[in-house]
Design a protein around this nucleic acid. Structure first.
Length: 380
RNA sequence: CCGGAGAUGGCGGAGUGGUCAAUCGCACCUGACUGUAAAUCAGGCGCCCUUAGGGCUUCGGAGGUUCAAAUCCUUCUCUCCGGA
């Protein structure tokens, strides 16, 4: 469904895709580039900003919008993902999690940052982001049931403490929005428990803390990929219609289409930006190496969405003088050939990263527009 | 001309009797990437067989020693350094 999220820095038209500006920057492009690529809202990360810059410093500099030079909505992630990727997945490191919170050590500087549900909120308020996220505690499906249950319990406790702090600190004139993150890996019962406990707390947004639901490669098997989709459908049904649904880390264009089809509103992923740097370009389907297709089955019943992909560093583009996508009007497609961009990327030239990123973000924003228009058609 | 050093797979550069089709880096090829510790990572990279594995031809050229040579010997060619 087409909805709007009203923030201090403008309205977000959903379904919306927000690129990740993890360190306060969308890698290899400027915010002007992002805007010109159709981006209207972005995600940034609490832990990284706190660790590298310091939220109090950013507050002193006038807040994250002024600091970055971006006057549109900013969503801050809580640092919960780092709990998973930097602590759970790296056993034996000096990082740790307790009920109080979690500690991260910057491997490059040795600097320790402690994140609790409360100070994660404080940090995000210092940043002055528009949409905040409660500190969450993800868990992998390969852990024991006992551990998974404990993890969900802690996730709920943290969420409760986060929303309490949020309500204490937020002023009425400065409207802020808070999201709570549903965890539970690939287990429907645990997900349901997590969702119902969080629903009692009345967050503005409910987040799917999901991708990846599994450690290693296994989650990409057909069976688990199906489970991932089933889980998204399952959770979407549990979340009331007056709440926004944010599928964190999702994902591939076809998965975003699937999520939009099943009622999810917000998305973020590093795929378009990272893949751009690595030479994987998203294009309209006739221009790609193979057709990737999503056929609507929910709200978007009877609609078909297709696109393609180019491994631009491949030899096959060496002498290709066509633009990356002749149906695209971004700076990249208007000015350079595949062959030239391929060269820039192979040489790790920043100019190549920039053009490829601009292209992929333009693709993503067009994709979202396509999905939104399809929803509008259906709603008529 | 004399003395010294050296010639290794696209390049750089290990290896000085068997475990060497030959470490490693670069380049090259293919693939991955999902709330970014990612300009990253994985695999391939003499030829042939679809893989496990096997077969074949390689370490400047030619010849020799040895059960066995990129590795030892002889010789030729070339390169670099020093001295006339």
């Amino acid at each position: 469904m087409i909805k709007e999220i009203d923030t201090n820095h403008g309205k977000i038209k959903t379904p919306a895709f927000m690129p990740d500006a993890t360190y306060g920057s969308i890698k290899s492009i400027s915010f002007t580039d992002a805007f010109n690529s159709g981006i209207r809202e972005i995600v940034t990360t609490t832990l990284h900003l706190e660790q590298k810059i310091g939220s109090l410093n950013i507050k002193e500099m006038g807040g994250i919008h002024k600091f970055m030079g971006w006057q549109r909505p900013v969503l801050s992630d809580s640092g919960g993902w780092q709990v998973f990727s930097l602590i759970n997945a790296q056993k034996g490191s000096k990082n740790f999690i307790t009920e109080a919170g979690c500690s991260f050590i910057d491997s490059k500087t040795g600097k320790q940052t402690f994140l609790s549900p409360e100070n994660s909120i404080d940090i995000q308020l210092n940043l002055d982001s528009d949409i905040l996220t409660a500190l969450d505690n993800p868990i992998g499906a390969s852990e024991s049931l006992k551990l998974r249950k404990e993890s969900i319990k802690l996730n709920t406790i943290w969420a409760e403490r986060a929303i309490k702090r949020f309500k204490e600190q937020s002023s009425t004139k400065n409207k802020k929005i808070l999201g709570g993150v549903i965890q539970g890996a690939g287990d429907f019962e645990l997900r349901k428990t997590s969702a119902l406990e969080l629903l009692e707390m009345d967050f503005d947004i409910y987040n799917f803390g999901g991708i990846p639901m599994y450690y290693g490669e296994s989650w990409k098997s057909e069976k688990e990929y199906r489970l991932f989709h089933e889980m998204l459908v399952f959770l979407a049904k549990l979340i009331p219609a007056n709440k926004f649904k944010y599928a964190m880390g999702v994902g591939q264009p076809k998965d975003i289409a699937f999520c939009v089809d099943t009622g999810w509103d917000l998305f973020d992923t590093v795929l378009p930006t990272r893949n751009a740097r690595h030479g994987l370009l998203y294009v309209s389907s006739p221009e790609g190496e193979e057709e990737i297709k999503y056929t609507g089955s929910g709200e978007l019943k009877n609609s078909i969405f297709t696109y393609g992909v180019q491994h631009l560093k491949s030899l096959r583009y060496k002498m290709d003088s066509k633009p990356v996508d002749s149906n695209c009007s971004c700076e990249c497609c208007k000015t350079v050939s595949r062959a030239y961009l391929r060269n820039l990327l192979r040489l790790n030239e920043p100019a190549g990263f920039r053009l490829a990123t601009i292209h992929n973000l333009t693709f993503y924003t067009s994709w979202m527009k396509l999905l939104r228009n399809s929803l509008l058609e259906v709603q008529k």
